[in-house]
Structures are given as structure tokens and as C-alpha cells.
């Protein structure tokens, strides 16, 4: 016969065993439940089979349609963009308190800002500051560069410029792309597109330099939207004017700003030498990207015949190449 202490020990052993069993079971069930919660039942799908991104919102403001401002005789980008906004009636007409603003810059190449192959950091800083002063809650900066994104944002000075102004760079990480189809388009169909940054904002401003481009003739505000495409987008170089037209159809920005204080006249889009640049002392801002680029073409000494995408975009109803018809506000310093 067992003694009482022996009996107690046995009971305690059983209880401890049961407690541990219960804990282990709970652990297993918990881990299983966690796994179930994270379980992607479909798994990764081919690009074409993935769900399309939600439609890109229309960021334009009907009351500001057809506004264009041209600042001539300016070499200081900061002063230039301030004057352009004044001529447009003030940035407050475009950016309202609480807005979330996306600046789509050209950060295509990991090159120094002096080469003017990318959006100048001064412009990024000042536009970010002015948006925040106008009451914007957040300002984001993004692009899907040609070269390595992190190097591009660092070496162009855009990342530092954005931080200095209180804005933040959104890198084009894979999860920020989704297949997208532009209604009526032939090329942008189920194409990976940088849509996530566009879905988190209610205002979009394009910031582009004036550049020669070996394929398209020029790279200005419309070509700047090319940086929203992902995947092997270089295949579109064979139909460069069509793809630029479709990009113009895809996104209706709140405002575009074309920096022609210094224009890349030759060897674009990368340039590489300061000799490729020419001071053209002009900054253009407006809500009609076609009209803004038609004005910018003159800085590059190109005609509309050199840039077929401008007329193609006009035919699609995106804007007008007849910028005079918009009666641009001209500021001459």
C-alpha cells in the first residue's frame, strides 16, 4: 500500500503532466491558427492572372482645368516655382488642408543633380514645403527609376531634399505594383504599375526636367509618368509615342511642373556632360500636361512634328498642344 506522501506526489505528477499537455495543445492550436490567418490560399499567381489594381483616381480639379503659367528669365528654381504658383492663383487652390500629396519626380538615373538628368532636389524641397504650408497632411515622393532605386534617390539628392522638407520617399518595392489596364489602351494592359502610392493620396503633382530623349525626342511631364511602369518596360521603346500617350491617358494629375531653367539639349536622356545642357531660364506649371510639354518643346528647339506623342495625346482628349488657347499666365523676370 502506498503511503500518503507517495500518493500526493503521484497526484501532483499527473496534474503537472496534464497542465503541460494543455499548454502544449494550446501552443499547437495557437500556432496553427496563426498560420491559418497568414495562409494565402491562392499562392502567387502569374502576372496576367493577378487581380487588377483598383482604378487610378482622377486627381485633377475641374475648377483649375486648363491653367498654365510660364515663368521666364529665371535660373533659381525655388523662386521660379513660387512665381509659377502665384501666377496660377496660389497653391492653396490646388492643395487643401488634410490632403495627402504625391510628388512624382524623375529619379531615373543615379547621377548627380548638376547633370539635370533628374528632377532637381531644390524643386523637390520647395514644392514639398509649399504643399505642407498649404495644409497638406503628408507629402510623399516616388518614382520607379531606371537604375537601382535606392542609389538613384540618394545620389540625385532627392531623398535628402524630401527629408529636409518633411516629405518622405516611397521606394518602388514589389508590393507597391499591381497589374493595371488603361481603358482603351493597347500597351498598358495587365501591366505591373506603381499604383499603391497613388491609392494612398488625393493629390498628385508631376515634377520633370526638360530633356532630350534618344527615342521619344523629348522627356518632359508626360514622359515622366513612364516611371510608374514596372516590369520589362523597355519593350515599349519600340512604341515610345504610343506608350507616352497611354500614360497621359492613365493619370490625370492635379498639377505638373516642368523645370526648364536648364535644359538637356543633347545626348538624352542620360546626358553625362554639362556641355549637353543649356540654360533656358524657364519654369512652366499647369494642369494640362500636353500644353505644358508643347511649351517645353520650344525650349528644346523641337516642333510638334518631332514629338508625335503630343498630338496623339491631344487626339485622346488629354490636353491641347495649342497652349496659346489656354491664355497662359506669363511672368517675365
Amino acid at each position: 500500500m502506498n503511503r500518503p506522501s507517495e500518493h500526493n506526489n503521484t497526484l501532483q505528477d499527473r496534474r503537472a503532466f496534464l497542465r503541460r499537455l494543455a499548454c502544449s495543445a494550446l501552443g499547437i492550436v495557437g500556432a496553427g491558427a496563426l498560420g491559418l490567418a497568414f495562409w494565402d490560399r491562392q499562392g502567387p499567381l502569374p502576372e496576367a492572372a493577378r487581380a487588377l489594381a483598383a482604378p487610378i483616381p482622377d486627381f485633377s480639379l475641374p475648377e483649375q482645368a486648363g491653367k498654365v503659367a510660364l515663368v521666364r528669365g529665371i535660373s533659381d528654381r525655388i523662386r521660379g516655382v513660387e512665381l509659377a504658383f502665384q501666377a496660377l492663383g496660389g497653391l492653396e487652390g490646388f492643395i487643401r488642408p488634410g490632403d495627402h500629396v504625391l510628388l512624382k519626380v524623375n529619379a531615373a538615373f543615379a547621377l548627380p543633380p548638376a547633370l539635370c538628368a533628374t528632377t532637381h532636389p531644390d524643386l523637390v524641397t520647395r514644392v514639398s514645403q509649399l504643399c505642407l504650408q498649404a495644409g497638406a497632411d503628408r507629402v510623399w515622393v516616388t518614382d520607379n527609376p531606371i537604375n537601382d532605386p535606392a542609389s538613384c534617390f540618394a545620389l540625385t539628392g532627392i531623398d535628402a531634399a524630401a527629408r529636409a522638407a518633411g516629405a518622405r520617399v516611397l521606394l518602388p518595392t514589389e508590393d507597391r505594383f499591381a497589374p493595371y489596364t488603361v481603358p482603351g489602351a493597347d500597351l498598358i494592359r495587365h501591366w505591373p504599375t506603381l499604383t499603391a502610392p497613388l491609392q494612398r493620396v488625393n493629390k498628385v503633382i508631376g515634377l520633370a526636367p526638360v530633356k532630350d530623349h534618344h527615342r521619344s525626342g523629348a522627356s518632359m511631364t508626360l514622359k515622366n509618368w513612364y516611371g510608374l511602369l514596372g516590369g520589362r518596360r523597355n519593350i515599349f521603346h519600340q512604341q515610345i509615342h504610343t506608350i507616352i500617350t497611354e500614360l497621359a491617358m492613365m493619370i490625370k494629375p492635379t498639377l505638373v511642373i516642368l523645370d526648364g531653367t536648364m535644359s538637356m539639349m543633347h545626348n538624352g536622356p542620360t546626358g553625362g556632360s554639362l556641355d549637353d545642357l543649356k540654360p533656358t531660364y524657364t519654369l512652366i506649371a499647369g494642369t494640362d500636361g500636353v500644353a505644358v510639354d508643347a511649351m517645353g518643346a520650344e525650349l528644346l528647339e523641337r516642333t510638334l512634328d518631332h514629338l508625335p506623342h503630343l498630338r496623339m495625346a491631344e487626339e485622346k482628349g488629354v490636353g491641347t498642344v495649342d497652349y496659346e488657347s489656354l491664355k497662359p499666365e506669363v511672368v517675365t523676370i
Binding site: A108, N147, H213, H214, N234, H237, I240, G268, T270
Partner: peptide
């Protein structure tokens, strides 16, 4: 090549 120099690759 176009990953580095974009449209200038065509040259």
C-alpha cells in the same frame, strides 16, 4: 543595357 541608360541603349 536599357536598365542603365534607358532609351540611349538604342544608340
Amino acid at each position: 543595357l536599357s536598365d542603365k541608360i534607358d532609351g540611349k541603349a538604342e544608340l
